[in-house]
C-alpha cells in the first residue's frame, strides 16, 4: 500500500515539476507547483508525519501558492517568450546541476546500508500524536534554529513593508 502510494505520488510530483518547467504560461507553472506540493504532502503522510503533511497543504498550497496565483492574476502576466537561454546557464548551470545530481546519488548509494536500517521520521515515528512530539522538539532541542527562523521571517516582513511603503 505504502509502496503503491509512493510510486503514484512520487511520479505525480516529478511530472508536476517537469510540467512546471515546460509550461509557458505562469499560471500553469504555478498550478503544477501546487500539484508537486500536494503530492509531497501525501508522501509525508504515508511516512507517518501527518502534521507535516497538513502543514504542507495549508501553508504551501493553501497560502503561498494562492498568493503566487493571485499576483500572476493581478499583473495579468502573459505567455513568456522562448529564448535560447543565457550562456551562463549552459556553462555553469548544466554542469552544476549534473554535479549536484552526482553528489546526491553518490551519498545515497554509499549510505544505502545505513538508510535501510534507519527509522525514517526518527523521533516522530513512535507516536499516535505527532503534534505533541513536533512541538516538544521545536521548543526544546530545536529551539535555537526555530527562533532564528522566526527572526528571519520577521526581517523579511520588515523588508516587504519598507519596499511596499510609498515615498512621502
Amino acid at each position: 500500500m505504502q509502496l503503491a502510494l509512493f510510486i503514484i505520488f512520487g511520479a505525480l510530483a516529478l511530472g508536476g515539476a517537469l510540467n512546471l518547467l515546460f509550461q509557458r504560461h505562469p499560471i500553469h507553472s504555478a498550478l503544477s507547483l501546487v500539484v508537486v506540493m500536494m503530492s509531497l504532502a501525501v508522501l509525508y503522510w504515508s511516512l507517518g508525519a501527518e502534521f507535516l503533511a497538513a502543514a504542507q497543504v495549508i501553508v504551501y498550497s493553501g497560502a503561498i501558492m494562492v498568493l503566487f496565483v493571485f499576483v500572476i492574476m493581478l499583473l495579468n502576466a502573459g505567455k513568456e517568450q522562448r529564448t535560447q537561454g543565457s550562456r551562463a546557464a549552459y556553462t555553469v548551470g548544466i554542469p552544476g546541476a549534473a554535479a549536484i545530481f552526482c553528489l546526491l546519488s553518490f551519498v545515497f548509494l554509499s549510505e544505502r546500508g545505513a538508510l535501510m536500517t534507519s527509522n525514517i521520521g526518527g523521533d516522530l515515528s513512535n507516536g499516535l500524536d505527532n503534534i505533541a512530539q513536533v512541538s516538544a522538539m521545536l521548543f526544546t532541542r530545536q529551539l535555537l534554529p526555530f527562533e532564528i527562523t522566526s527572526i528571519l521571517i520577521l526581517v523579511a516582513i520588515l523588508g516587504a513593508v519598507v519596499l511596499a511603503r510609498k515615498e512621502q
Partner: peptide, 15 residues
C-alpha cells in the same frame, strides 16, 4: 488531525 484536514481542504478550495 481532522481539524487541520478541514482547514487544508478549505484553503485548497480558494483555487
Amino acid at each position: 488531525i481532522g481539524l487541520l484536514v478541514v482547514l487544508g481542504v478549505t484553503s485548497i478550495g480558494v483555487y
